[in-house]
Every structure is written in structure tokens, then in C-alpha cells.
């Protein structure tokens, strides 16, 4: 897929673990792992909003587009 999820990069910048983000956002570790690995098919606005709020970033910092 051309959409790249940079969640691991943002987590590293904010020095936050996936477990901590999972607890703060209220999403299971399994679902966050799916999102981080790029296997997710879609992301809800509510989830994106919660992640952006906790990581203090914009959606563009987490999601990127790379064409062929």
C-alpha cells in the first residue's frame, strides 16, 4: 500500500513505548501493532485524534504517502 504509517518514528521522537501509548489511547496492543506494522486497512478519525493528542502531533506526522 502507498500509505506509510510512521507511528514507530513518532514514538521514538516522543520517547514513548507502544504499551504506554496503548494505555493512554485506550486501544489494545494487538490493534496498535497492526497499525504500526502497516497491516491495517483503515483508521478511524477517533483513533487518529486520540493518537495525535497523546503524541502531540498532526495526522501527517503519522501517515505519509509514497507513490510508485
Amino acid at each position: 500500500m502507498a500509505i506509510i504509517v510512521n507511528l514507530d518514528v513518532m514514538l521514538a521522537i516522543r520517547k514513548m513505548s507502544l504499551t504506554e501509548l496503548s494505555e493512554r489511547v485506550g486501544i489494545t496492543m494487538a490493534n496498535l501493532s497492526v497499525l504500526k506494522s502497516g497491516k491495517a486497512k483503515a483508521i478511524r478519525f477517533t483513533t487518529l485524534e486520540a493518537i495525535c493528542r497523546e503524541l502531540n502531533c498532526k495526522p501527517g506526522d503519522i501517515l505519509d504517502y509514497k507513490g510508485d
Binding site: I27, L35, K41, A42, I43, R44
Partner: peptide
């Protein structure tokens, strides 16, 4: 269903 399961 698969798409719904992979929607975070």
C-alpha cells in the same frame, strides 16, 4: 469482515 477487523 476482514476489512472491519483490520480497521483500527
Amino acid at each position: 469482515k476482514k476489512e472491519q477487523d483490520l480497521t483500527i
